[in-house]
Amino acid sequence: MEVNAQTEIIVAEGVSKTYSDHGVPVSAVKEIDLTIRTEDFAAIVGPSGSGKTTFLNIISGLDTVTEGKVWLNGKLLSEMSGRELSDFRRDNIGFIFQAYNLIPVLSVEENIEYIMLLQGVPKSERHSKVNKILAELGLSGFENRMPTQLSGGQQQRVAVARAMVSNPSIILADEPTANLDSKTGAELLDLMRELNKTSGMTFVFSTHDPMVMERAHRLVTLKDGQVVSDEIRE
């Protein structure tokens, strides 16, 4: 299969995942073919248990496929070792989880610069990048706060900052607004959409929330582990 790494950030081909639940096989994802393109702002939606989390984990290399192939930036994930996958995630993917994204013993600034530390980015560069992103996300002045001293919405914004700061090619978010009230959730989504527009960053997120779906520019619907619709909206 030919992958155009310029425009096709993620290509999933015939991806299936079967878990074993006490010996009983559970088919979480079935033969999904899906391509995520540069600058997508895509929502993966579907009822609980439809396979959203499983699919996101697979395309980010956190989980393995039972069948099928996944290319990320033109690289086949199944060919990478554990260590290579770690480095690949570090350099190519930003993650935002539903909650508890931040390391509680690190300050806001330390959380945001963590990935750059792993990458060996020099201190002055880290510092200026952290300051820049904090300003962009309206978090200036919070750099020395500990995560517990932030509201849920602020924590999620810091998580966005951490995901973005090292300029990955894609940001994956599994229900990023699930722990926020709808107003804060909407604000976070608007912020992400804004970043998607201004910096051309690609976003893929899963959600249950109609308010979030409304803001997505592409809507991929899963049901029983399969894609039942994939619509682009303007």
């Binding site: 260590r83 995630r89 390391i103 792993l118």
Partner: peptide, 16 residues
């Protein structure tokens, strides 16, 4: 556990 998952997800190597 969750924190360890996050650390690994964002690119911390197993050796680390």
């Amino acid at each position: 556990m969750f924190e360890f998952g996050v650390l690994r997800a964002v690119g911390t190597r197993p050796g680390r």
